[in-house]
Every structure is written in C-alpha cells, then in structure tokens.
Design a protein around this nucleic acid. Sequence first.
DNA 1: GTCTATATCGGGATAGAC
DNA 2: GTCTATCCCGATATAGAC
Lengths: 210, 210
Amino acid sequence: MSAETTRPAGDLSPSARRILHAAARLFALQGYSATSTRDIAAAVGVRQPALYKHFPSKDAILSALVDAAVGPALAAARDLESRPGRAAAHLYRWLGDYLARLEDSPYLLVSILVTPELGQDRFAAERRALDRLEQVTTDLVARGQAEGDLRPLDPRSGARMVLALFDALALPETAVAAREIADFALHGLLADPARLDDLRREAAAPLPPG
Amino acid sequence: MSAETTRPAGDLSPSARRILHAAARLFALQGYSATSTRDIAAAVGVRQPALYKHFPSKDAILSALVDAAVGPALAAARDLESRPGRAAAHLYRWLGDYLARLEDSPYLLVSILVTPELGQDRFAAERRALDRLEQVTTDLVARGQAEGDLRPLDPRSGARMVLALFDALALPETAVAAREIADFALHGLLADPARLDDLRREAAAPLPPG
DNA sequence: GTCTATATCGGGATAGAC
DNA sequence: GTCTATCCCGATATAGAC
C-alpha cells in the first residue's frame, strides 16, 4: 500500500482495478476530498461499503494510485541510468514512454501528481515517491547539461517545469498529445534545438544493454 | 463575486484580503475541500463564523481568488492585443509580468489554477474565466506562429503547456523563478531560440501606445 | 464585526445478514 | 464479496448576544 512497495498494477484484482479507474477519473474531475466513497462506488456500480473489501480506506485508494503512477516511471528511469547513451536522449525516451503509458492508462494518473491533498502529513510516504520522481528527473537534466546538450539553468527548476507539463496531459477529451509534451520539454531544455532530431534518433533506437 | 466582474483586489477590505491570503495558502498546501473554514479562521486569528461577515460562503472565497488571479491577467493580455509589436514579444512580456505579479502576490494564486474542485458544476463561471485565459494565450501563440516566430504546433496545446508551467511557480519556499518559467515557455515555443534575445529586448522596451 | 452555541448535513467506516 | 443499517465525527452555515 505504501509508496515504498511500488507494486505493479498487475497485482491488483479486477475489482480493485475498476475501483482505481473510477476513483482516478473522479479525483481528476473534482478533486480527492470532493469525491466521496459513495461517488466512487456509484461509478463502479456497487454500494459504498463494498469498496472496503478491496481497500482499507479512501486514503489507501489514493496511495495505490500514486504507486501505480510513480512506480513504473521510477523503475524505467533507474533502468536507463545503467545504460550507455546521452542523458538528453534518455530523458526524451523516458518522457515519451512514460507519457504514452499515462495516455493509454485507464487511470488518468496525471492529475494525481498535482493532488494538493498529498501535501498533508498523512501522505508523507506518497510525497517521498513524488520527490524521488523529481530527483531522477533532476539528475537526468544535470547530466544532460554536463554533456553539453542542455542549456544551463537550475536543474531542479528544469525538472519541476518538465513535470509540471504533465498536467497538460490532463483528461482524455482535452488532452495534449504525449509527444507534443516531450517535444516541448526538450525544446525548453535544449541548448541547441537543432540537435533534437539527432536525440530523437538516439531515443528511438533500441535500448542498448547496460 | 462572479468571475465576470473581474473586480480588482483593491476593492476588498483589509480583513477580506487577510482571509484570501490565508485561504489561498491553505488551498495550495492541502487542497480546497480538505481545508475547513475553521482552518482558514485559525490562520487569520478569528473564529470560524467571523468569516461569514466577509464572504457569504466558502465557495465565494475560492471564487474571489479565481477573480483576483485571472482578472488582471486577462486585462493585461487584452491591453497588449491593441498594441503594435510581435505577438511572441507580447507573450514573453505578458508571461514575465503576470508571473512576477503572482510571485509577489500574497495570494499564492498559482495553485488555484489547478484546483480540481473547479471542475464541479457550481464553479462554471470560474471555469469560464480560466477558459478565457487559455483562449487569449492560444491567440497569442497562433499570432506568433503566423508571424513566423513560433514553431508550428497546435496553438491550443501550446497554450495549455505554457499555462501548465505556472504550477512550477508553486509555493514560495520551493518556487521556480518567474523568469525561468517565461524563458522555458519561450524556448518551448520558438522556431529559432536565437531570436530570444531579440524578443527579450522588444519585451523589455516600454510598451508602445495602442 | 466578533463571539458562543447550535442546527443540519454529508462523509468515512463498521456490524452483521446473506 | 455485496448488501442494509447505522455509528460517529467533522464541516458549513445560522442565530442571537455583546
């Protein structure tokens, strides 16, 4: 349940998945606190107490969503760290893959990333997961700068702005395409945008073994 | 109270301003619904019912915050429309001014822009205000493309991504600087970043009369 | 314009039958 | 594993004294 476990979504029962799907959609549309467990249950087609056979609390639902959103992204980023290649290309590949995954995901996880309720003390574990996401992004930006591909700016600021762009993915009906976001992010960071085609090629190539 | 009025913040009593300040901070930290009117009152140093002498409801507080956040930005953008000059330079100037204003503002309005509760029906008027903000941004992007300064991408997507960056302004302690955001946005949009210095000069010059 | 006291409602969670 | 019924609490808002 905690963000430490980064349990893959595959471990969840079909019922639990349906609950997460419905909850994520409602959280995105109207916010976490404004969504009642009755709302979630109605969207799933069951009565409110039925949820508690799958999750011990409403908070646990949000926690599971954070895990499902952040876990795969962290795993992918760490995998990339061990591979050869330019950090800027890794960043581009990582953004494209992760954003496309979110786009396809039924969970609409993006808006979870900006759920302000996570600022409360009881979600400290989830906040740590988000902090790790920011940290791996910061590392990629810093490496890209050291390698000369990315323009000089505070790498933490760069990471924050890249992650802030995720919110543009938003809801399906109005979404900005994943590739548009990845392109915008790289344009925002690159020292010389002429190198983007080059990076795109490297990022599209099969991943060399670490 | 409605977003239509775009009433300047100057119309508010000092007490009302203190309430808005405290409320904005708490909404940003833990979310709108998760913040109780008791929380707000405690932050202001009064008891909960005292708030109702200044605002008729909790929703009205959020509504006033949206007005204060969006009103000046729309006014500034419309003013720019009537002036000569390149749209890309206008966009840069507008972003810099508006973001700096938010940075200085005691209201921490940024996170208001992503408050998911605004998705609920009863905030339709506030959503329209945010839609207008997106529309003026879209228009600026489209004009910048027509003038050849901005690279081709869906102007609506471009506007969404620019506005999504606002969230990086976040809270004071961890904020990304306003200028960093404006620079990142322009880099993300520009056809040729070499033109940025030029645009910066035009944006820094005194505004020519319309 | 702030207070105390309180009405009223809705939400999270549990008990226990099926 | 879902249901009905219910507990309990916290939240918004109002009443009325000062």
